[in-house]
Design a protein around this nucleic acid. Structure first.
Lengths: 335, 335
DNA sequence: CTGTTAGCGCATTCAG
DNA sequence: CTGAATGCGCTAACAG
């Protein structure tokens, strides 16, 4: 029997003893160092197999200086957008032999700081962050001791960082144009608090779309600060109750779109609807619906690609900004 | 200036030098060991602050023997069910000061083995696994060197492990009873491959529901091995095209429910539908729909609770099985 | 209350 | 091709 208590993990020393070689030879075999005699290699592998030995990555990373850990900080994993982003990042990381450490901030800046601090103390090789707040000073290179950071979905502010974004402006512009092209002249907007960058951009695109049609934003038809489906439903109800209600609405994300759908369905109006983010069942609703679609999983993959690139080439290159295109999908009435 | 190159992380030695104390005192301060003189504590904290020092968790865990890392292996993060489960596990882990390491298997047993191996080599303190395959021998304590494992959503087989499950049988039984109570006598079933435990259980519940109504399963109305929305849509179409089509369907998960809805909508039949898993917009469809609902986030929380419990109390206690209740939700036609 | 010694498990360096 | 010495950063166990 081994000299260790049974539930203690074996070490290289244990493997070495069993194989009748030095720990160094075991280390070499496990790193695929070619300078090992074939029979020694065989003996080591047999001992590894017998003991079910697994190299201690914590010890290894301490010595080697790289953890092959990739930090991923998202604001809300319950949102399919971010879970798909996480999936995309995880899959690319896995392809490159890296392991993902996940954190959810629930949009709390304080929690984000803690998480980033934890990732730093775990010496992750890099991190992808969907930033919760507007100020990203705590993500600056000198604050994270040079660990590469890539922002996803929201651009850096107060820090020069790589980032991957969606074409929020262009998508919103295109969708709004679809509405005005159909003759709508009173178009409302449902959005998140303006300090959320994506929502602000989408509002900019919306405004530009109206402007292109010679229209201007009617503030009575704009509701920002909506924080979810229920709020959107309520706001939509209020808009529809106005004396001159909007004949069309643009919603800044899928949660708001769903809220608007509920209200419109309930009110039995023919209000036209366009919104950001595709979602399941959009096609089954039997409601005309213009959607700005894109691939959030791709966003995660791009972010991971940028990060691995930065890890390989160092911090000398200028920060890069990748913008993912959107496409317009038209869902029709039930056929 | 520090003797290190600027982008090198500071160590306790650096902090100690700057504070004019020994590394041991720094270590004590950082561990909140009370046996440190107040003025020394202050000097250390000042040095920590100045250098932006973050303790190296890899080195610490190597010495202490605990990584405070919690492994989480899911089959498909794109499925809202598992992303909510992950969120639940992450939130409870975070509350307990643990960090989550995430892996996605895409239902591939081989990938699961790799991931579990990686988690073992990273010496996670415990792991939650949604197992992909039917055989869980590779998760047995001796194979993971005693690291606690909790299974989620699917029960252990070939290993004695803690697990958290949904009341698949009871939920399916209850929903089926709702259908038969409304007079349906030809009820079809759409499910996943029978080797997926949840789907098999739901089929058992379905069959029991029919039996309670004095009915038996008509194999012509059963389609298993459906792997997604499109397959479910196709299968539903085929069932509806039969000479004596089912008047009601039970679907084993939300992906299949959505596929069935598409087909039913397209066929413009009045086929009744009951399914497992709640989903967004179920209420807006304007379709009578019986749903077996439960809280997947709660599942993640329970799994993490079980795991932390196991980590605290050791492997002596008998394996536990927690079953989460389901509830029936009836969505009506558009009012 | 503080510091010294030693070693967690591994890989780099340098001799054989 | 192989092994011995050394140290990555940290903390238990022991002096003082």
């Amino acid at each position: 029997m081994s000299p260790r208590t049974p539930d203690q993990q074996a070490t290289m020393r244990d493997v070495a003893e069993r194989a009748g070689v030095s720990p160094m030879t075991v280390s070499r075999v496990l790193r695929d160092d070619p300078r090992v005699a074939p029979d020694n290699r065989a003996k080591v592998l047999a001992a590894v197999e017998h003991l079910g030995y697994q190299r201690n990555e914590a010890a290894r990373s301490l010595r080697v200086g790289s953890s092959r850990l990739l930090g991923l900080v998202v604001t809300n994993l319950a949102n399919p957008f971010y879970s798909h982003l996480a999936l995309g990042a995880e899959s690319l990381a896995a392809d490159r032999g890296m392991t993902v450490v996940l954190g959810n901030t629930a949009e709390a800046v304080q929690r984000e700081r803690e998480l980033v601090g934890d990732l730093v103390s775990r010496r992750v090789s890099g991190m992808i962050v969907v930033p919760a707040g507007g100020d990203h000073a705590h993500l600056r290179p000198e604050r994270v001791h040079g660990i590469p950071v890539v922002l996803a979905a929201r651009p850096p502010s107060g820090a020069d960082l790589d980032c991957v974004l969606v074409d929020d402006f262009g998508g919103a512009l295109a969708a709004t144009t679809r509405l005005t092209a159909r003759g709508h002249r009173r178009v409302g907007f449902l959005g998140l608090p303006p300090n959320v960058w994506t929502s602000a951009e989408r509002f900019r695109g919306f405004s530009a779309g109206l402007a292109e049609a010679g229209l201007s934003v009617d503030e009575r038809h704009v509701r920002l600060n909506l924080d979810g489906t229920a709020a959107a439903e309520r706001a939509t109800g209020e808009l529809l109750d106005l004396a001159d209600p909007p004949t069309a609405l643009f919603t800044a994300n899928s949660r708001l779109t769903i809220g608007a759908i509920r209200a419109i369905t309930r009110a039995r109006t023919t209000t036209a609807l366009a919104g950001f983010d595709d979602f399941d069942l959009a096609d089954v609703l039997g409601l005309p619906l213009t959607i700005v679609a894109y691939d959030p999983q791709q966003l995660g993959r791009e972010a991971a690609t940028l990060l691995l690139d930065r890890m390989a080439h160092g911090s000398d290159a200028a920060p890069r900004r990748v913008v993912l295109p959107t496409r317009i999908v038209e869902y029709g009435t039930r056929n």
